[in-house]
Amino acid sequence: MRHILSVLVNNQPRVLARVASLVGQRNFNIESISVGESEEPGLSRMVIVTNGDKHTMEQVSKQLHKLIDVIKVQNLSADSVVERELLLVKVGASPASRTEISGIVEPFRASIVDVGPSSLMVQATGERSKLDAMIELLRPYGIKEIARTGVTALARGMSRQKAISS
């Protein structure tokens, strides 16, 4: 089962490494991890996407709480969440195919952010499935490079918050 963990941590060196190591020691593959400043000065929010059963994820949450720099762990999987990912994709594009590619990215609310002599760079945000669908439509033009941020997520305003503070 897919799980999204939101982990509020002190913004200190090596915290990311300790959190990732702890999850890896439990034999979980991290599908994605994103980290950035939070609403509180000095704190960062990590959003970790992984797979595992409910019992094991509870154990991972308990172990995360034991880390000194972890302030709060929230399993967003049980809540109604807003999740997004940022995608940059560089596509082969001759001047003749640019209008066609533009027509593909427009319904995805994506935008062309760079134009080169033989390529376009497209920026898109959304759920993973939406971005995957756009990539598949762009594939015939020749994808040169892809960069993805991984999932970032927050519980919706009316979600029940299952957060445990340490």
Rank of each mutant, 00 (worst) to 15 (best):
M1S: 13
I4V: 03
L5P: 01
S6D: 00
V7G: 01
V9E: 08
N10G: 14
Q12L: 10
R14C: 12
V15M: 11
L16S: 04
L16N: 00
A17T: 14
R18W: 01
V19C: 05
A20E: 00
S21L: 07
L22A: 02
L22M: 08
V23L: 06
Q25R: 03
Q25H: 09
N27V: 04
F28A: 13
F28V: 09
N29Q: 15
S32D: 04
E37G: 15
E40P: 08
E40Q: 07
E40R: 11
P41F: 05
G42A: 00
G42K: 01
S44H: 00
S44A: 01
V49N: 13
V49G: 06
T50I: 14
D53I: 01
K54P: 08
H55S: 15
H55K: 15
M57G: 01
E58P: 05
S61P: 10
K62T: 08
L64T: 05
K66C: 06
D69L: 09
D69C: 01
D69E: 01
V70K: 07
V73D: 12
V73Y: 07
Q74W: 14
N75F: 00
N75V: 12
L76V: 04
S77G: 15
A78F: 12
D79T: 15
S80R: 03
V81Y: 04
V81A: 11
V82N: 10
V82S: 12
R84E: 04
L87A: 06
L88M: 03
L88Q: 05
V89P: 15
K90M: 11
V91W: 01
G92Y: 08
G92N: 12
A93H: 00
A96H: 13
T99M: 15
G103F: 02
I104M: 09
I104W: 02
V105W: 02
P107Q: 10
P107F: 10
F108A: 03
R109V: 04
R109A: 09
A110Q: 10
S111T: 07
D114P: 14
G116L: 15
V122F: 13
A124N: 03
T125L: 02
E127Y: 11
E127G: 13
E127A: 14
S129N: 09
D132K: 05
A133N: 09
I135F: 10
I135L: 14
E136W: 13
L137T: 00
L138W: 08
P140C: 11
Y141M: 14
G142E: 02
I143R: 00
I143Y: 00
I143W: 00
E145M: 11
E145Y: 10
I146V: 06
R148P: 11
T149Y: 13
G150A: 00
V151F: 15
L154M: 13
A155T: 02
G157A: 06
R160V: 08
A163C: 12
A163N: 07
I164E: 10
S165I: 15
